[in-house]
C-alpha cells in the first residue's frame, strides 16, 4: 500500500528538525522509517510533514564519555550497535540484543531512537535500557531534558515525548558487573523479555545492587522490585537461590496482558525462566571475571 501524500523535509540540524516538526500542521520525525512507514502504509498514521533526520550530523555516535557513561546516539542503527567495538566491549548483551532484533534489513536502517520513540510494547531495547539505568536525552523548542528509561514509555505506543522533541542520545553508566538479557519469542517479536544488570561490591564477590526489568508483558517494562531487593548485598553464588525464593511472589506482582503471545500464567512463568537463566549466566560471567 502507498502512504497518503505528505510533505518531505530534510533537516540538517537538530534545531531545524525540531522547528520543522513544530510548525503548523502535524509533522513527524523520520528516521529509519521501519515502523513509521509501515504504519503510514497501513494508513493508521497520517502525517502532513515528514522531517528526515538522517542528515543531522553527530546523532549516530557511540562513545564512552569522561563521566564513565556510555552514550549511544539515537540515530544508531541496530547493525551499528551490534557491531560497535565500544558496546561489544562494555555491554556485549546489548550488542547481541541488537544483532537479533527483527531481520537484517530492519536492522540495517532501523534505529534505537526510532524503536524507543515508537513505544511498541513488544520491543527489546526498552527493557534492556531500563535495566541499564539509562536516561534518554530529548531536545525540544525549549531546550533539552532527560527522561529516565523507566519513565519514557507511558503505555502502548505512547511515550512522554512531545511531538516536537527529538531524541538525541541515550546515556547510561558503564556497567560494572554482569549484564544479561534474554527474550522468548514465538513469532516476529518478543513475547517476554528480561534484562538484568548487577553492579558489584569491591572485590566483586557480592552484588552491590541489581536492576531487573521484565518487558513485553504489560504496556511497558516493569521492575521486579522483590528480586532486586533480595539480591542487594548478596554473595554472587547465592543469587540463583535467592531469586528462586522470592520469584513466585515477584512474578505475581507483574501486570500481564493476555494476548496472542500467550496467557498470563504462561508469560509469568516464562519471565521466571528467563530471569533464572539470566542469573545463571550472570553468575558464570562473574565467576570468569574474578
Amino acid at each position: 500500500m502507498l502512504p497518503t501524500p505528505f510533505e518531505f523535509d530534510r533537516a540538517s540540524t537538530v534545531a531545524a528538525a525540531v522547528s520543522a516538526v513544530g510548525q503548523e500542521g502535524e509533522g513527524m520525525f523520520y528516521s529509519g522509517g521501519t515502523e513509521l512507514l509501515l504504519a503510514m502504509k497501513m494508513r493508521v498514521i497520517h502525517t502532513e510533514r515528514l522531517v528526515d533526520i538522517k542528515g543531522i550530523p553527530g546523532l549516530d555516535r557511540i562513545v564512552l564519555n569522561d563521566a564513565n557513561e556510555l552514550e549511544i546516539g539515537s540515530r544508531c542503527t541496530h547493525v551499528k550497535i551490534a557491531g560497535d567495538s565500544v558496546i561489544r566491549e562494555h555491554v556485549p548483551a546489548l550488542a547481541s540484543l541488537c544483532a537479533n532484533v527483527a531481520n537484517v534489513r530492519v536492522r540495517s536502517v532501523g534505529t534505537i531512537g526510532g524503536n524507543l520513540c515508537f513505544g511498541e510494547p513488544h520491543a527489546d531495547p526498552p527493557t534492556m535500557l531500563g535495566a541499564l539505568d539509562a536516561r534518554l536525552v530529548l531536545q525540544g523548542p525549549n531546550g533539552t531534558r532527560s527522561v529516565h528509561a523507566d519513565d519514557f514509555i507511558r503505555s502502548e505506543l505512547e511515550t512522554v515525548r512531545e511531538a516536537d522533541e527529538l531524541m538525541i542520545v541515550i546515556v547510561f553508566p558503564r556497567p560494572t558487573g554482569p549484564v544479561t538479557y534474554r527474550r522468548f519469542k514465538h513469532g516476529e517479536r518478543p513475547s517476554v523479555n528480561v534484562g538484568m544488570a548487577w553492579s558489584m561490591e569491591a572485590g566483586a564477590h557480592s552484588i552491590k545492587s541489581a536492576r531487573v526489568r521484565v518487558g513485553a508483558l504489560g504496556s511497558k517494562p516493569q521492575p521486579l522490585k522483590a528480586v532486586e531487593g533480595v539480591l542487594k548485598g548478596l554473595p554472587v553464588h547465592d543469587a540463583h537461590r535467592a531469586i528462586q525464593s522470592v520469584l513466585a511472589a515477584a512474578l505475581d506482582e507483574l501486570d500481564v496482558n493476555e494476548d496472542r503471545h500467550g496467557s498470563a500464567d504462561y508469560k509469568r512463568h516464562l519471565a521466571g525462566v528467563l530471569l533464572l537463566r539470566n542469573a545463571e549466566e550472570a553468575v558464570a560471567m562473574q565467576g570468569r571475571a574474578t
Binding site: F8, G33, L38, V109
Partner: peptide, 12 residues
C-alpha cells in the same frame, strides 16, 4: 546493505 524496498521511501 540489504533493505526492504517495499518500506523505503524513494527519496532515501
Amino acid at each position: 546493505d540489504p533493505i526492504s524496498s517495499c518500506t523505503t521511501l524513494a527519496v532515501d
